[in-house]
Design a protein around this nucleic acid. Sequence first.
DNA 1: AAGTTTTTGCAAGATGACTTGCAGAAAGCT
DNA 2: AGCTTTCTGCAAGTCATCTTGCAAAAACTT
Lengths: 291, 291
Amino acid sequence: MQVSLRNDPWKTAVSLIDKISDQAPSLTPSERRLVETVIEKPTAAALGTAGELARAVGVHEATASRLAKKLGFDGYASFRDALREEFIATHETATRFEKTITTNTPETILGKLALDEAQALGRIEEFINADQIAEVAGLLMGARRIFVYGYGNAEVLALMMVKRFRRFGKDVQHLTSDPRGMAEHLLGIAPGDVVLSFAFRRQPRGYAALVEVAREAGAKTIVISGKSGALLAPSPDYLLAAPRSGDPDAFQTLIVPMTVCNAIVIAAGLTAKEETLKKLDRLGQLIERFE
Amino acid sequence: MQVSLRNDPWKTAVSLIDKISDQAPSLTPSERRLVETVIEKPTAAALGTAGELARAVGVHEATASRLAKKLGFDGYASFRDALREEFIATHETATRFEKTITTNTPETILGKLALDEAQALGRIEEFINADQIAEVAGLLMGARRIFVYGYGNAEVLALMMVKRFRRFGKDVQHLTSDPRGMAEHLLGIAPGDVVLSFAFRRQPRGYAALVEVAREAGAKTIVISGKSGALLAPSPDYLLAAPRSGDPDAFQTLIVPMTVCNAIVIAAGLTAKEETLKKLDRLGQLIERFE
DNA sequence: AAGTTTTTGCAAGATGACTTGCAGAAAGCT
DNA sequence: AGCTTTCTGCAAGTCATCTTGCAAAAACTT
């Protein structure tokens, strides 16, 4: 099922993620590596040639050309145009992030961490736009019941979302990872329900079964993930994927996905016609209160 | 004289602006129009071909190719690479600006203005970096005397800078536009002095004479301008050029250049070893106090 | 008005980037 | 082990982009 945010044309990146999600199960090993690199450095991919991307990955440029065709583009140039349209801000589309840390790299751990977070947060809208946040928030607030699932470290985020949406008066179920417990909770899942899951590093245990059961019952599925969310199989109805800060091979923080969650909560508050936010400092205060 | 910010390698955009400034007096009419379009929409120019830029301007692609050579590049591809390096943030170089207004275009005039300003401010570091601000602030604080000149609307900014730097205890002369008054003030200009001027839309009256007199006397020259500052002739020693918000053919605001001035003043305060700023909210408060 | 210089479009050639037919290698199946 | 299918590199061909010699047009000078 394709990600369906709106009927009117939306940003090409959503379409690109959508195309990648559609093809994820059928990608060959070389194609998968190409896709991972494109997701890792979309701007570099948007600026380079098929040969440059292929060499960076260690495959042939012909493979890159075939991948573009496989993803539904006329050729590699069309694929790259789609990357440019989404990941490169032009005069007309620029959204920015205020510099919060000096350009010089701090020597302290905290300083370096803050810099990494600011940079990762600064890139968040390269991957997730306000329409996605608004759509997901609206879906959750309109749900009959909400099922929230987080495996491993992500359980922290799942618990936070359970608490927040219960404060909105929603019927929220907190799924656990053991199959029996999950099955019991999902017994009554029906159309009008929404499943919210988190996915980092690798596909979480129980994810495939969860999404399939939800789909069969006619419920919608939402995933908040790191940069590899497009490779999830089966793909959810809604995917909010943004790379987290930190070394991919070592410790990565939950700051970026937590920020995504906060944005959804705030948007949900707007959806519920709470106080209208008019200034950024007010928004900042609200974020602080939620943290 | 080339713009000299540092001995170590600096960002290519400064080099690009520098190259354009060097060649400004000798550009043909078609070349000038190409340059103006590149300055107007640097990202679009960075992504397109020589043929696309040429067609947008109404000249032949051969002219675009010759311009690149004239500016000192091996060819058009090298010229475009320089544009990309500076104007397109990649994974490694991204500095961002926090979104201050919703992506939806407000219907009110104030709302629309705020959006335009935020976007223009958000792009300011595409054109001016922290090193430039620090260098200019250091130059002003180390000057023996400072001559400030602003013609037309820019006189507001000139007066503000005169007041601010006088509060730092600097010897500041406020130049007026009539030739006799300017000549009288400039009688005693000498090495160690600094001239600060503003230039918007078109080259201000008396500018050429001012910069030439300053140069002959061995004084340094600084210009804060809109996006066409690279076309000033003669070129100043230091150029801080960033496009202002608003319709170029109608009313444009002074918010962006005033922000540049505020940044210089704040950096000058740091140079003078005043209170060290550690958090952005503190910086925000300081900006509000200065406004 | 005539002559000279500069500008710039035209078009042929060069070069880079991409596509696709082919075939060998690798993986999977019996 | 043998056969089949899939994957992917190779290389020839195609297309897009850029460069540059040439010459006409425009601008400048006398």
